[in-house]
Write a protein that binds this DNA or RNA. Structure first.
Lengths: 348, 348
DNA sequence: ATGAAAGCGCTAACAT
DNA sequence: ATGTTAGCGCTTTCAT
């Protein structure tokens, strides 16, 4: 049993109410306040947050559920959330679902049992669906992956635009057979795929998107097979940093030079994308802003629960590096304009 | 106000005690149990963890305080901890101090206010000191950075051995002017520095260690100046993944080729170290094991508080890649054996 | 300015 | 097997 407010009250010769007032900076005479502080120090008293929360019905806690803590995108977003939360005197409860709906459900339950003040959530596709049917009991903001739904506040990237930017850039550099690997567990992965497909078609090219688990290993495995086959692309787009890493690993393993054998572009401007090979062309997401915006939407909603759901759409910034800047013979470039299906047809 | 056990009891026509028994799988008749479950479902009841914790005096919570969540080493350790915790029915409270003693103290206070069951902590140097003077009120396990102190259980890498392994490897490859950058905020950084210095001296070489804040930027800045100066090393050791990244960035910025202009070795086998340049030689830490071992020590202590503090020392594995494998003329190698101070002296 | 007392939601004796 | 009740540590009326 640890030291309670009662022990402090006894030691200071006052009532528990007075101690409580001292703790909450209430009206207390200076000398009694001093006596109480002395007692607190002498006993090493620390308030019990469980008791306080139970009494006040105020958790002062923001839940943050992300799908993969190993993904630097989410750690960066987390920092944004944390900074804003602590400025507001709130704690952050960080949970990691591993893109696993089971765990996601478990953590959502936990959040409810903790009676969190609000929640910031990067849901899987499956969860996104459930959230529309069974709305949450507390204010929530969706990040990174909001889908179309209109029940929740959200802050996302303009994924279609960003994917289009990458396709456009590759097209202008002369690439035609442009493939793409996309995370299959998130609305974001799908949106980037859609943007890619639309952009390809708009240029008269045949899209070749592959949906994968958003992990390094899945990316490497899929790309290894793809690159070794007859329908190998001459440029590839990866929908997040983990898949991008997988692509690079596969290219290296197969001895494909970047960009001369394979041009590479992707999402997430992580440190390593700058130093690998000739540098990787990426869409940089305003990671910290995503976190901050999410908190800001959340606080607005806490103050005014009646607000209509808002969607904040941020833009990515395309950082062009050497991985997409092959300068090659025009002849080869000509060759490239053959539609992707042409080559694919060679492989019945 | 949310739904409480009382509402459920009323709806099911039983007492709150019975509901509580149902929740804790106590002895309840099958049909009443069913009625209670029905009521729970109908009302969407979820237990209030604050109340439960207050009553049971059992937080069922493991605190985890790390110094930098952006460092993949710590996210990986975190996963190990989380896995073990959830298997034991415990929650993890993850906090991130940014190597900032202020925040570290704040979080330590928070842990106490949450009345955590136990704590896993990667302390800064300054905190390590305080921990010896003012012991914590609850069981704690130090990870990554334990220093010499004997008050706490700890699980660490054999840092001196690992640093020696790197020096030895570089020496055998013919490098003589071997510099090192080490994190200045952790016992681990200092131990690796000491191991490096001892190993250098044992080979008749003059060590040139630099202590830095353990960040990419600090590493890049320091190395840029170092490499541009007259006492530039021909090989460099970096004491963690962030500094290692800084070294690589600096080398690239200055147009130094790896390994022909600068050999590079470091700690932490992150994905990117495999794909950058010729691949980076690194010490791989058993990251997941560190987390798991920490939890295991913690649980042992919870069951038996009287145990004497134990220190688990794990070994790193040296992964040799191209960044340290320059094959160069013997003449150059001869040149290299000139003591580092010789060159340094040219710069008064 | 301070104290007495109720009660937040829950569990665990102790009754029945 | 089930109900009654005390109390975990705290805040917050309501008195004084």
């Amino acid at each position: 049993m640890s030291i309670s407010i009662k022990d402090v009250a006894e030691k200071a010769g006052v009532s528990v109410a007075t101690v409580s007032r001292v703790l909450s900076e209430g009206p207390v005479r200076a000398d009694t306040k001093e006596r109480v502080h002395a007692a607190i120090k002498a006993l090493g008293y620390r308030p019990n947050l469980s008791a306080r929360r139970l009494r006040t019905q105020h958790a002062q806690t923001i839940g943050l559920i992300v799908s993969d803590i190993r993904n630097p995108f989410f750690t960066a977003v987390g920092r944004g959330v944390e900074d804003a939360a602590y400025r507001a005197g709130m704690r952050v409860l960080l949970c990691n679902t591993d893109e696993n709906v089971e765990r996601e459900r478990m953590y959502l339950r936990l959040m409810q049992e903790e009676r969190v003040t609000g929640l910031i959530l990067a849901p899987t596709l499956a969860m996104l669906d459930q959230l529309q049917k069974n709305p949450l009991q507390f204010p929530a903001v969706l990040i990174d992956r909001a889908g179309a739904g209109g029940l929740y506040d959200s802050v996302v990237l303009d994924n279609r635009e960003a994917a289009n930017t990458l396709v456009e850039h590759l097209f202008e550099e002369g690439y035609r057979r442009i493939g793409g690997v996309f995370g299959q567990t998130s609305a974001t992965g799908l949106e980037r795929r859609d943007g890619y497909c639309a952009s390809m078609k708009a240029r008269g090219l045949t899209p070749d998107p592959r949906l994968l688990p958003p992990t390094v290993d899945a990316g490497e495995k899929a790309m290894s097979e793809w690159l070794a086959g007859p329908d190998a692309p001459e440029a590839i787009i990866a929908s997040n940093g983990l898949l991008l890493m997988g692509v690079v690993k596969a290219a290296q393993r197969l001895g494909r030079a970047i960009p001369s054998d394979l041009a590479v572009a992707g999402f997430d401007n992580e440190d390593w994308t700058e130093v690998v090979g000739p540098g990787l062309t990426v869409i940089e997401q305003p990671v910290h802003d995503i976190g901050r915006n999410a908190m800001s939407l959340l606080f607005d909603r806490l103050q005014n629960p009646g607000l209509a759901p808002r969607k904040v759409v941020l833009s990515g910034r395309c950082i062009v590096r050497g991985s997409t800047l092959a300068s090659k013979p025009a002849a080869l470039a000509e060759n490239r304009s053959a539609p992707l299906t042409g080559a694919a047809a060679m492989n019945p």
